[in-house]
Design a binder for these strands. Structure first.
Length: 561
RNA sequence: UGGGGAAUAGUGUAAUGGUAGCACAAGUGUCUCUGGAUCACUUAGUCGGGGUUCGAGUCCCUGUUCCCCAGCCA
């Protein structure tokens, strides 16, 4: 047996608790977690943190993890959302075929539990409206008052509750409340509502129910019913834990342990479903899967890999401190993954025509190009070299500053996998703008090396003008101008910080012919520019690419100074 | 002014009474047919004040700051 010299990985506090529970034999050392989204919106990167945490935990401790839809509010929930959530969780890499559950499947059981509480004198039907309920609740510093309906008899409560269930009362006219303590310092314990009347059609149970359980009543029961051992949730539910504990203790049923961690915040974006929904509904973005959105589907469309997202989630860790992660860290994880996996191709986004004056007019020379220098398995391809080419406009300067190494009048550079070329003349239009470059090439440098050993300072990407494919390229920048979009002037909301340049569409871009083979969803690197993902909007006539991320750009940094 | 939480480089995250480490960011250099990647290096931290201890980020006391809670939302 070989000694495992791998340094002991430090455990985060969640894993620390679980490890202790396993050692102490709690729940027979079982680990069963769950991810419980409400199907009222699309999943975002913050959910990915939770998904990866919960499913990783199950994986690491040989346990299970359920995907459970918390569908207790029919007025907000839709099938579109459950479908997207299933798709996203699967895409993230988790096998959930046998572990999809719905809170709505437990409605009858919850109803029976409620009757149990009523019979025990621990719950009552209350006729107070929402406005009155709020008044009776008191305030943060002042105790509440008992509802005048608090002392109804068990029989009366039973009868009324059944009538509520049977739809005999109007929405909002009655609720079932837990009888706890109206003076409790924790407001959640001041006779919380367990059921409200909602004559709404549910995406799964249809019109069977017209009373629906409140989250605080339902959630702990769902976990309990599924035999969950560790209910991992975000910090804001810490205040609710005493209530879940109370319900479960009254009912004397399986008692999972809730552990709270800090939700993910990230710079230059928003992470609330309400705000994301507003962006979608107000058409400030093009749907939930707009590549600028922090949604899983948006990131997928943008070209982020699930592996990069998993790596990101591992890197940020899990703790109770509230934090805001630098978006640059996510980008780092994306680049890190794509660098190893994405094939390289050449494409020109801002074309400047180049004529190689000493190159034969109808000649096409197919040159060898390596697909991925980071992966020998990726092989090679051919790229066509012709008399007329396109280079990136930014790769030429008529009056280059000291640190600009690229093409300039009289200067020689290498065209990647091609030849050394020298700029011999500059053609301008009547406005004085450069519209074409005349260059000469050195036939001896075919493939990119000079037999005489002479060197150049720059290697540039290029595309043949005649042997190329046309593309539309969408360049994405931060959706918001500020690190914290929620920081706004009085009277404004987060949309005031929207970045008007978050999307730049470039048409008439030229790509090398090999790009014809790229399928929607595939991410490649356009050399020297960045990673780009082929979009589903691509047609036979025109490919569409989304910029996933730029490459790190030292020149841009120098240029900024 | 009630209750519940949290404070470690710019941003995150470790160190469970014993050398404050890692990643990202920033910077410098190396290398390069991608100004990418790689490699090497640098900058930079325990919220304040007391105490216990040979020794405190860690334990005790005290103060400060920040977050969450008054939906028939989750």
């Amino acid at each position: 047996m070989t000694e495992n010299i791998e340094p002991k990985r430090s455990l985060d506090f969640v894993r620390g608790i679980i490890t202790e529970d396993i050692e102490s034999g709690k729940w027979d050392s079982r680990v069963h977690t769950r991810f419980p989204p409400e199907p009222n919106g699309y999943l975002h990167i913050g959910h990915a943190k939770s998904i990866n945490l919960n499913f990783s935990l199950a994986q690491e401790f040989s346990g299970k993890c359920n995907l459970r839809f918390d569908d207790t509010n029919p007025v907000k929930e839709e099938d579109e959302y459950v479908n997207s959530i299933i798709e996203d969780v699967k895409w993230l890499g988790w096998d959930i075929d046998d572990s999809i559950f719905y809170a709505s499947d437990y409605f009858q059981q919850m109803y029976d539990y409620a009757i149990e509480l009523i019979k025990a004198g621990k719950a009552y039907v209350c006729d107070l409206g929402s406005e009155e309920t709020r008044k009776y609740r008191g305030s943060l510093t002042a105790p509440g008052q008992n509802s005048p309906y608090r002392n109804r008899t068990v029989d009366e409560n039973l009868e009324l509750f059944e009538k509520m269930k049977n739809g005999e009362f109007a929405d909002g006219s009655k609720t079932l409340k837990a009888k706890i303590d109206m003076a409790h310092p924790n407001i959640n314990m001041r006779d919380p509502v367990m059921y409200r009347i909602l004559h709404a059609s549910h995406h799964r149970s249809g019109d069977k129910w017209c009373i629906y359980p409140m989250y605080d009543w339902a959630h702990g029961l769902e976990d309990s019913l599924e035999g969950i051992t560790h209910s991992i949730c975000t910090l804001e539910f810490e205040n609710h834990r005493p209530l879940y504990d109370w319900f479960i203790d009254q009912l004397n049923i399986h008692h999972p342990q809730q552990i709270e961690f800090a939700r993910l915040n990230m710079t230059y974006t928003v992470m609330s479903k309400r705000k994301l929904l507003k962006l979608v509904q107000d058409k400030l973005v093009n749907g939930w899967d707009d590549p600028r959105m922090p949604t899983i589907s948006g990131m997928r469309r943008r070209g982020y890999s699930s592996e990069a997202i998993l790596d990101f989630c591992k890197t940020i860790g899990v703790a109770k401190t509230e934090s805001t992660i630098d978006f640059a860290l996510l980008e780092h994880c994306v680049r890190n993954d794509l660098n190893k996996k994405a094939n390289r191709v050449m494409g020109v986004i801002d074309p400047l025509k180049v004529v190689i004056e000493n190159y034969p007019e109808d000649q096409v020379d197919w040159l060898d190009a390596i697909n991925n220098p980071e992966d020998a398995e990726a092989g090679s391809r051919k790229v066509p070299f012709t008399r007329e080419l396109y280079i990136e406009r930014g790769d030429f300067m008529e009056e280059p500053p000291k640190k600009f190494f690229r093409l300039a009048p009289g200067r020689e550079v290498r065209l990647r996998y091609g030849y050394f070329v020298t700029c011999t003349d500059v053609v301008k239009n009547e406005k004085g703008e450069v519209i074409e470059l005349i260059c000469s090439y050195d036939p001896e440098t075919r493939g990119g090396n000079a037999p005489d050993g002479r060197r150049v300072k720059a290697t540039m990407h290029w595309v043949s003008a005649s042997e190329s494919v046309l593309a539309e390229i969408r360049l994405y920048n931060n959706l918001f101008n500020t690190e914290n979009p929620d920081k706004v002037e009085e009277g404004q909301d987060f949309t005031a910080n929207l970045n008007s340049d978050s999307l730049e569409v470039r048409i008439n871009c030229f790509l090398e012919p090999a790009c014809k083979e790229i399928e929607p969803g595939q991410t490649v690197q356009f050399e020297r520019l960045g990673y780009f993902c082929c979009d589903k909007d691509s047609t036979a006539e025109e490919l569409v690419f989304n910029r996933t991320a730029t490459l790190k750009d030292t020149w841009a940094k120098i240029n900024k100074k």
